[in-house]
Simulated scan of single mutants.
Amino acid sequence: MAKSQLDQIKSHLKSGRTISPLEALGLYGVFRLAARIKELRDKGWPITTDNRTDPNGKKYAVYFLEDKGTHGLPDFALPEWAQRGDVA
């Protein structure tokens, strides 16, 4: 069974890589990356946006997982998403 676009983007981000709209289109056929990122954020994923400008002056966004860090907290003190292991 093929992975959904959301699952592909989650795996990509969990691997520690960034993703841009052009990469999402080329790698996974995702035309609306910002919409998929919003869905992940709505589920509690700590995704950060880095706004960039290409050499021609065109603006675009690059997304990555924010490193929240657990600061040595015991499992019961971690946020729910971290306890489930949703974000690496």
Rank of each mutant, 00 (worst) to 15 (best):
M1E: 12
M1L: 14
M1W: 11
M1N: 09
M1V: 10
A2G: 12
A2I: 13
K3R: 02
K3C: 00
K3H: 06
S4A: 05
Q5C: 01
L6H: 06
L6K: 07
D7L: 12
D7E: 13
Q8T: 12
I9H: 01
I9E: 01
K10A: 14
S11F: 08
S11E: 06
S11G: 12
H12L: 07
H12K: 07
L13R: 02
K14P: 00
S15P: 00
G16R: 01
G16Y: 07
R17C: 01
R17K: 06
R17M: 03
I19V: 02
I19E: 02
S20H: 04
S20L: 02
S20V: 12
S20K: 04
P21Q: 05
P21W: 13
E23Q: 12
E23F: 05
E23I: 12
A24W: 03
L25P: 00
L27Y: 10
L27D: 04
L27R: 03
L27P: 00
Y28N: 06
Y28A: 05
Y28T: 03
G29F: 01
F31M: 13
F31K: 15
R32W: 04
R32N: 12
R32I: 01
R32L: 07
L33D: 00
L33M: 00
L33I: 02
E39R: 00
E39M: 05
L40W: 12
L40P: 03
L40K: 02
L40D: 09
R41E: 10
R41Q: 11
D42Q: 04
K43H: 11
G44Y: 14
W45T: 08
W45H: 03
W45M: 04
W45Q: 05
W45K: 02
W45E: 05
P46A: 10
I47F: 06
T48M: 14
T48W: 15
T48Y: 14
T49Y: 09
T49Q: 10
T49I: 15
R52L: 14
R52G: 06
T53S: 00
T53E: 03
D54V: 06
P55R: 14
P55G: 10
P55A: 13
N56T: 08
N56P: 02
K58I: 08
K58F: 08
K58T: 14
K58Q: 11
K59F: 04
Y60P: 05
A61M: 07
V62M: 06
Y63M: 01
Y63L: 00
F64S: 12
L65I: 11
L65C: 13
L65H: 07
E66K: 14
E66H: 15
D67F: 15
D67L: 15
K68S: 08
G69I: 12
G69V: 02
T70E: 07
T70W: 03
T70P: 01
G72R: 04
G72T: 09
G72C: 11
L73T: 10
L73E: 12
L73G: 08
P74K: 03
P74D: 07
P74W: 03
P74I: 01
D75G: 01
D75W: 01
F76M: 10
F76S: 07
A77R: 10
A77W: 14
L78F: 09
P79I: 11
P79N: 12
E80F: 07
W81K: 12
A82N: 05
A82F: 11
A82C: 13
Q83R: 10
Q83V: 08
Q83S: 05
Q83Y: 04
Q83M: 10
R84P: 02
G85D: 04
G85F: 06
V87T: 13
A88E: 09
A88D: 11
